[in-house]
Amino acid sequence: MMDLARDILAGLFLSAGAFFLIAGAIGMNRMPDLFTRMHAASVGDTLGVSLMLIGMVFLAGFTLVTLKLVFLLAFLLFMGPVASHALAAAALQAGVKPMLAADGTKKSAAKRRKSAAKGRKP
């Protein structure tokens, strides 16, 4: 009975994790440029992977394996953002222009006002 409850709980966590990983993958395909794709991927990286690992912790029961999974989760959460930051910084350095909304930057807003004053379209 306990085993069944545990398996169901673990299953719920695993399927929720799978849902967010898939959502991240769909987002990777739907987003228009590198930076927005990274935002989509980070859903899978954080919530998706965390839920998966929590589900596995329930499956493993309380053993040393549980602890290793917790370590794994901690390392992923500490090192994932470092890699994301490196990728984003490198892309910007290499001249990838992020696609921004019309009011995306203060600079572009100022430029737009200036060109509007001159009576041109931005």
Binding site: G24, R30, M31, H39, S42, L47, S50, L100, A101, T105
Partner: peptide, 25 residues
């Protein structure tokens, strides 16, 4: 915070209109 913003980004991804407004600041 991670859970909250994951849910909101997931909602954006699954929204047919894809309502994003990227910002750099």
């Amino acid at each position: 915070e991670i859970v909250k913003s994951s849910l909101s980004v997931t909602r954006i991804i699954l929204d047919p209109k894809l309502p994003i407004s990227p910002q750099l600041f």
